[in-house]
Design a protein around this nucleic acid. Structure first.
Lengths: 192, 192
DNA sequence: GATCCAATCTTGACAGTGTCCATTTATGTG
DNA sequence: CACATAAATGGACACTGTCAAGATTGGATC
């Protein structure tokens, strides 16, 4: 595919590399994805990526940001949709369900998002920081509407869905068990 | 240290390698620990480990098992101690607190325990399987005593402490926030 | 439109890694 | 004591991340 159209200047190499890497991420964890492999998939030399990413970690950061964007979009859509149909409680349950679903359906992307060796939470990327903030904001606001106003309780909800998603994505129990456990746990937390 | 005492046969190389690797695990994540580096730390050739571990993953499995043993011991001691002093509710809170504390104090070990590329939960190691079972058993039994009898609710408790521990270990919020959030979340889950 | 520049991409090189192979050394058992 | 076997060694290979130097290109400048 290289010699046919554009010999040297690709034009959208950064995008193409990210696309190729995201595709690989569906099949194998980020730790097993090599830069050279991604370059090969994009049909460029093994050093071309260095003109668009500072590092191997640079590419992984981009993957984490993309993945976080998708995770956030899934949660936001679920929350908004359920709040329109039902109420804040339904919105909260739908958001958690979407969060867990993403973790199970894209375990490697999910892991990449929260890998501290890729994005240090203390000093996150300029792209990543607002995404995390928005996720927290959505959860916090929805939790407050549903009657869980304190910071601790919003954090507990995040922890609950995150833990169940992580454990389930790692294969410790089936998806429906994680979903059911979240519904049970969150419901019990809400004021009766 | 090699030439001084034992030239060839180490005697306890497997142990020594695991010890060295566990020490490295305190400083860097498992992904950044190389087999050759561990061999160097144990003062043997880069190929010596292959006589005691099938693979790089073999050593990581051993690290995960050891770490899980420590995590389990911490939780068990906390639960037993608190059940003696207080009641099942105190035991449950103490167990979760110990779980989170381990995650924060030994983030790399904690991550190694739950790394699905090291120990596949569907087919865990002979050593790992009973450890996971015991952890679940302790949590399930304590939760039941505290009034959370169903499988879903025990799973939710595990997910809650696991998620808060994971997020906190990754640096997403300080330790006391995670501890407070667990107490708040678990207390809310318990029947009032 | 010709010329130069900076960005892009390439090839080449180096050290480090996981793992296979053949070889050397030590241990324990007959 | 001899000898099979386990334990450790050194060498080799392919692969990786990354640095350095050269080739190619598109676009701004005159």
């Amino acid at each position: 595919m290289s010699s046919s159209r554009e010999a040297y200047h690709h034009g959208r190499l950064a995008q193409a590399l990210e696309d190729a890497a995201m595709q690989l991420l569906e099949r194998k964890p980020a730790a097993e994805i090599s830069l050279r492999e991604v370059a090969r998939a994009a049909d460029v030399s093994h050093n071309a990526p260095y003109h668009h990413f500072t590092d191997r970690r640079g590419l992984l950061k981009a993957l984490a940001e993309r993945s976080m964007g998708e995770l956030l979009a899934g949660v936001r859509d679920a929350v908004d949709g359920a709040r329109a149909d039902g109420g804040p409680v339904e919105a909260l349950l739908a958001g958690g369900s979407a969060y867990i679903r993403f973790a199970v359906e894209h375990p490697n992307a999910f892991t990449a998002v929260y890998d501290p060796t890729v994005c240090i939470p203390g000093a996150p990327t300029e792209t990543m920081a607002p995404l995390i903030d928005e996720l927290e904001a959505i959860l916090g606001a929805t939790a407050a509407e549903a009657g869980l106003g304190s910071e601790n309780e919003a954090l507990a909800l995040w922890g609950l869905m995150h833990g169940l998603g992580t454990l389930c994505a790692a294969g410790h129990f089936p998806t429906d068990a994680a979903q059911a456990a979240f519904t049970a746990g969150a419901t019990r937390m809400l004021p009766s």
